[in-house]
Design a binder for these strands. Structure first.
Length: 273
DNA sequence: GAACGCTTTCCTGCTT
DNA sequence: TAAGCAGGAAAGCGTT
C-alpha cells in the first residue's frame, strides 16, 4: 500500500492550517535537528526512493522510535511524491508517527525553498526556520512532544523490502542503542533555545562553551525524558563529568554550571549544520 | 549468561 | 551555610 497524495503540502500550510489552531509551545527539538542533519540534501523533492528511506531512518532514529513502528511500504516513493503528501496522508500512512514525519519533511521542504529563493546569500536556514516553524499549525490531538515516549504503532509493520528493514533496524541500533545520550539531549536543548527558553545558554558558541541557567529544570527535563522522576542536577552533573574522560566534554575551571563540548562531541558546531 | 557501555545513585571532600 | 564541583564505588539496565 502506498499513499496517494490528496493535496499539496503548500496548500495544506497556506490554506487549511490557519493560525487559529497553532500550538506555539509544541517542542521542535527533534525536527530542527533533523533539518540540520539533512541540510546537504535540502530539497527533498529531488530525493530518490533510497534517500526517502534514509530520511525515514534518520527521523525514527532521532525520535527513538522502533524501526518496526511504521509500515515502510507506505513510503515506497521518491521525494517528489513524498513532498506531495498532506498531513492527513502522513497520518494515514504512519499513524501517530505521521505527525513527526510531516513535521520533519515540512521543515526540509521549506528549508530547500529557502535556499533556492535566497540564491547566493550565505544564510543558514536554522537561524530563522526554527522560529518560523514554531508557527506551523497542528490539528488538535496531534501535538508532538519529544519528551513523551513514542506512540504505539498504528499500522502493521510489514515492510515491502525486508533488506531495507533489516538495514534500517541494524543502523538504528548501531547508531544509538540506548536512545538519546545525555550530551546529545543537552546539545539539542542548546540548539533550540526558542523551545527551551532560559534553561541553558551558550557562553561561547564557537568554542562550545555553555552554561546551565536553570540546572534543576534541565535535570527534571532529562528525568522526564528518561522516565525518572527522581533525577536531580547533582546526578545529571555526575553523568556530565563522566564525559570528561571520553572527551565529549572538557572541564571549564573555576566557573560553576559551565561546560564545554569536547573533541568527541558532534553536531553542536555551526559548521556541522 | 557474560561482557560491555552508559547512566544512576550514593558518598566524601573540596571550593565558591 | 548552601550550592556546586570532583571523582570513587557500586548498581541498574539495555545491547551485543
Amino acid at each position: 500500500m502506498s499513499v496517494t497524495p490528496s493535496t499539496t503540502l503548500d496548500s495544506q500550510l497556506t490554506a487549511n492550517w490557519s493560525p487559529t489552531h497553532s500550538y506555539p509551545d509544541v517542542p521542535m527539538l527533534t525536527g530542527s535537528y533533523t533539518s540540520r542533519l539533512w541540510h546537504r540534501d535540502s530539497q527533498p523533492q529531488f530525493w530518490s526512493k533510497y534517500q526517502v528511506w534514509e530520511w525515514l531512518q534518520q527521523v525514527m532514529d532521532m525520535n527513538q522510535i522502533d524501526a518496526s513502528s511504521i509500515p515502510f511500504q507506505n513510503f515506497d516513493m521518491d521525494g517528489h511524491q513524498l513532498c506531495s503528501l498532506s498531513y492527513q496522508d502522513f497520518i494515514h500512512a504512519a499513524g501517530s508517527v505521521g505527525s513527526i514525519l510531516f513535521q520533519s519533511i515540512t521543515e526540509l521542504k521549506w528549508s530547500g525553498q529557502y535556499h533556492m529563493e535566497l540564491g547566493q546569500l550565505d544564510l543558514k536556514p536554522e537561524s530563522n526556520f526554527s522560529c518560523s516553524f514554531a508557527d506551523i499549525s497542528y490539528p488538535p490531538g496531534d501535538i508532538y512532544d519529544p519528551l513523551i515516549p513514542p506512540l504505539a504503532p498504528v499500522a502493521s509493520p510489514t515492510p515491502s523490502s525486508p533488506d531495507i528493514k533489516r538495514s534500517f533496524s541494524r543502523q538504528v541500533k548501531k547508531h544509538n542503542p540506548r536512545g538519546t545520550h545525555l550530551w546529545e539531549f543537552i546539545r539539542d536543548v542548546l540548539l533550540n533555545p526558542e523551545r527551551n527558553p532560559g534553561l541553558i545558554k551558550w557562553e561561547d558558541r564557537t568554542e562550545g562553551v555553555f552554561r546551565f541557567l536553570k540546572s534543576e529544570a534541565v535535570a527534571l527535563l532529562w528525568g522526564k525524558k528518561k522516565n525518572n522522576s527522581s533525577m536531580t542536577y547533582e546526578k545529571l552533573s555526575r553523568a556530565m563529568r563522566y564525559y570528561y574522560k571520553r572527551e565529549i566534554l572538557e572541564r571549564v575551571d573555576g566557573r560553576r554550571l559551565v561546560y564545554k563540548f569536547g573533541r568527541n562531541a558532534r553536531g553542536w558546531r555551526e559548521s556541522d549544520m
